[in-house]
Write a protein that binds this DNA or RNA. Structure first.
Length: 473
RNA sequence: GGCGCUAUCGUCUAACGGUUAGGACGGAGCCCUCUCAAGGCUUAAAUACGGGUUCGAUUCCCGUUAGCGCUACCA
């Protein structure tokens, strides 16, 4: 039974890299009949915030990919403590009473790695127990094996076999002086307890994994499979960070820009992974079906954004593709919500609403376009663009619109065909090109100089409104 | 400094050791057309550098360079 976990730490909003990690975990689990576990790695109480927890949930909920189990590490400190005790009891960890260093890192590792605080390992068990009993604060450190030629190794599903000299691994902390578990301990203890089979996470964890291998071994637990994902970087090649790159890296930026979740998922899936068959636009089920760890790349991928525009152009293109191809009954509720948030009251019933959405969606790139460019299809009031104004300013255009209005008021049935017939007849009668009336009508009906085929617009806007809008030019 | 990871068009990427190095976004141009999109077509644009191995290297090996990551009582 495959069990994967997504373990964000709530120190900020859900960012694009985390979202991709979640999505890949989800694809892997779902295509292997496995379980997805959401675990908040919130052991660093100083830096965690509830706001962040909320925004992570907001982001995940928007993606619309479900998880099966949910845990918070802060609820599981007894488990972490027990793991620390077990490792300590085996003599694989020791207390370090050295005060925490603060400010500049002045430890002497200019010529090599820092491995441990001098003398800390040599404190006798008796003295260690005595000082601990006396209440002297300490960190519990893992006693990394120092034998010559001792290697730590693990296979990585993406990066291949990994190996490192134990001599290059420092005696990392398991427990902080306040008694709380560090990330390393808590993460491994929980992975063991939650029976995680595959750890899929960012490549920035590769060097941590050697430490984790040591912990798993100390806990007497077989290694889960590891798969590290290439990093997502900013256009300046730096690791994405909210401090340096701002909201461009937040999932909610895309949501708020009018993206539909499947398009966003499609976009981030193509960062560091590809189906290898030249497909680009894919639905979530297609992505899940095609996803394999073997097709994950190793080089980091750049997310394109600028100070002026936080949205990657390819993401925008994918969004427009999804808007025009996703099932209209899946899109319509999203559009309705968007219009709702924009304060546009929609009078349409579901069927006619879906028909209008279907008519105009091929021209739009984001959900916001429905409220702006598409406003006239839903609202009684709408602005007129300068280009549309120009259409009406064409010689005779306004008069023709008014006359068309009168003629349409007289037709018995109001269909695309009857409208076209009336309009072309008017053109013939007045000896003008039909195009003039067509373009002027589009402007009068929608406030836009551009849009769908003109006759379809008449029925989309509806008889009453069409006649009224033509009359008042 | 140490350790690790990586390197194909501007960006995302494809290429059993043999291709005119392919696709996509974005750019340029054309076609279609009642407008604008869409769609179709065309076009510019890449194997970081240097050595090997091989009949043949984008692909395998070594080195250089560059970038990134880790090097906390953060995760």
């Amino acid at each position: 039974m495959v069990r994967v976990r997504f373990a964000p730490s709530p120190t900020g909003y859900l960012h694009i890299g985390s979202a991709r990690t979640f999505v890949f975990n989800w694809f892997f689990a779902r295509s292997n009949g496995g379980a997805v576990i959401l675990r908040l790695d919130d052991t660093d109480i100083e830096r965690n915030t509830e706001v962040s927890v909320q925004s992570i949930f907001d982001g995940l909920k928007w993606l619309g990919l479900s998880w099966d189990e949910y845990y918070r590490q802060s609820d599981r400190s007894a488990l972490h403590q027990a793991a620390a005790d077990a490792i300590f009891a085996k003599g694989m960890a020791y207390r370090d009473f050295t005060p925490a260093h603060q400010g500049e890192d002045n430890r002497p590792h200019e010529s090599g790695p820092w491995l441990q605080n001098p003398g800390a390992r040599e404190v006798s068990p008796e003295e260690s127990d005595r000082r601990a009993a006396a209440g002297e604060p300490f960190v519990l450190r893992f006693k990394v094996p120092r034998g010559s030629g001792r290697k730590v190794a693990f296979p990585d599903r993406v990066y291949g076999p990994q190996e490192k000299d134990a001599g290059d691994i420092e005696d990392f902390a398991l427990l902080r002086s306040n008694g709380a578990a560090t990330y390393h301990l808590a993460s491994c203890a929980d992975d063991v307890d939650l029976k995680i089979t595959h750890i899929i996470r960012g490549q920035d964890h590769i060097s941590n994994t050697f430490k984790h291998v040591l912990i798993f071994e100390a806990l007497g637990h077989p290694l889960p499979e590891f798969a590290h994902l290439p990093l997502l970087v900013a256009p300046d090649q730096a690791k994405l960070s909210k401090r340096r790159h701002g909201p461009a890296v937040s999932v909610t930026t895309y949501r708020d820009a009018g993206f539909v979740a499947p398009a966003y998922i499609n976009f981030i899936s193509l960062l560091g992974w590809s189906p290898k068959d030249n497909r680009e636009q894919m639905t979530v089920p297609e992505l899940q079906e095609a996803f394999t760890l073997d097709n994950v790349n190793r080089a980091s991928a750049t997310v394109n954004f600028t100070d002026e525009d936080p949205i990657d152009p390819k993401a925008l293109w994918l969004n427009s593709q999804h808007l025009r191809t996703m099932p209209v009954d899946m899109l319509a509720p999203e559009v309705r919500n968007a219009l709702d948030r924009a304060g546009i009251a929609v009078e349409h019933g579901d069927a006619s609403f879906a028909a209008v959405v279907d008519l105009i969606r091929a021209r739009y790139q984001t959900l916001h376009d429905f409220e702006s460019k598409g406003r006239a299809y839903f609202a009684a009031d709408f602005p007129m663009t300068p280009e549309a104004e120009a259409r009406l300013d064409a010689p005779g255009a306004r008069e023709l619109c008014r006359e068309l209005s009168q003629r349409l008021a007289a037709v018995s049935t109001f269909t695309e065909e009857s409208v076209e017939q009336a309009l072309r007849q008017l053109a013939t009668d007045r000896a003008v090109k039909a195009g003039v009336i067509i373009n002027a009508s589009r402007a009068a009906l929608t406030g836009q100089a551009v849009g769908p085929g003109a006759f379809a617009i008449f029925t989309a806007v509806g008889r009453e409104r069409a006649i009224e809008r033509l009359a008042r030019v």
